[in-house]
Design a protein around this nucleic acid. Sequence first.
RNA 1: GGAUGGGUGGCCGAGUGGUUGAAGGCACCGGUCUUGAAAACCGGCAGGCGUGCAAGCGUCUCGGGGGUUCGAAUCCCUCCCCAUCCGCCA
Length: 468
Amino acid sequence: MYDINWIREDPDGFDAALAKRGLEPLATEVLKIDEERRAIVQKLQDAQAMRNASSKEIGKAKASGDEATAQKLMEEVAQAKTVIQTGEEDQRRVDATLKDMLSGLPNAPLDDVPEGEDEKDNVEVRAWGEKPSFAFEPKQHFELGEALGLMDFETAAKLSGARFVVLRGALARLERAIASFMLDIHTSEFGYQETLPPALVRDHVLYGTGQLPKFADDLFATGKQSDQDKDYYTLALDKLTNQLDTDPGAQMIAAEAAQMRNTDQDYLWLIPTAEVPLTNMVREAIVEEDDLPKRMTAWTPCFRAEAGAAGKDTRGMIRQHQFSKVELVSITTEGQALDEHERMTNCAEEILKRLELPYRTVVLCTGDMGFGARKTYDIEVWLPGQDTYREISSCSVCGDFQARRMNARYRVKGEKELRFVHTLNGSGLAIGRTMIAIMENNQQEDGSILIPEALRPYMGGLEKIASA
RNA sequence: GGAUGGGUGGCCGAGUGGUUGAAGGCACCGGUCUUGAAAACCGGCAGGCGUGCAAGCGUCUCGGGGGUUCGAAUCCCUCCCCAUCCGCCA
């Protein structure tokens, strides 16, 4: 969410930010509405001031028994009332228009973010590790996993359809081992507090981090009131429409149906990432500057519907409706945010180093960045089976974009002033993709997989995953 | 799912129609005292929006929306949320 004051001060800067995102200029339109809004507010407040002053006078006049004056004032106030009523309606309307307009806009990229269309224009900032060489043709993770009998897409499809997987035995344990390993490092070495948040959240929480209102199609929603119920109430309303004028009973039923349809009670969303609950920990709160940065990490399942992504990465575990991830979130002051971004990215990279997995880090170009980000580093791990780098972590600094949506602020030390916190999030790392990388990089000619040294304590000392 | 009770400033908490934007306490900030600290005492301290160079002024906000009234934290309607007990349940 953009600061309207900033748009007023620097409309060209605002339009330039939108241009970087490939959007048409909007400043003129926004400022026109803003001006309209201020005119409405001014008029409304004048009327309210008059009403308030007169009301006090009425009180005094009545107290002193001056009924004539009181009566005259009351008539004046009655006239102001219509002005107030329409003014309030106008303000609500124009506030909503402005909010709709601004809340659908992606965050402004920082100046040092490269401009570009899509992932082709991302810029590599560093690479680490040596790609393994094989005396044989390296396989893809699903070939290895299925051959081992520990990765089963067919059974998963029976249970849940496409884009799910069943892991068994050592691979199932590997998921747990990787997650524990990551959490241990982030908590004991990097100062993140381990957190176990809910995986179901309310819609305003998703609005806070920016998934709603624009990306509802990428999410799974759950609820006791099903969509069919809603359709039912809608249908009932349609059927009743032509009876409404004549039948009071129909009116009552229609009112009830309308209410049921518009009620989102018990309606929750599955989180697409732990970023959502972790970042929202500070929503509607005022934190002390001394408590920042606040660092949290969580291992959670993540759920993504990704309606638009059909046909991409259909084989294997790369793109699933459910996967788990260790997430990093930092809540910082304005001044801390950029350093924290570098730090967080290093925390994520450190995991790959300890797992001895080659990777590169890229800066996403303006066209490839997520909705809420001002700058994003993607860490891409080398996958020899696919002969390519694949994203395994995404670390973003969001400025105060999410904080404005959440109304999350901090008190500047020694001052009265409140400011919006700055938020950052990063994967530290995606578990499934880490598993894939281990499998493909550490595969042996016989199809077995060497477990990285660092993980062996988490695997009960197991050194190699092989078929029984 | 059933029954009740609630939602007030950073936190706790008083307040049932007229200088109450809100007592009191805690926290925080400044000061007096002290070698220093604590304690004690004095003072300050809600947020948003509008306007103004600023001091300030105005306005809104006591969960959200609507209503009654000259006037609402206070009365009415409605929605949301929370807590407790019972039921169900890992």
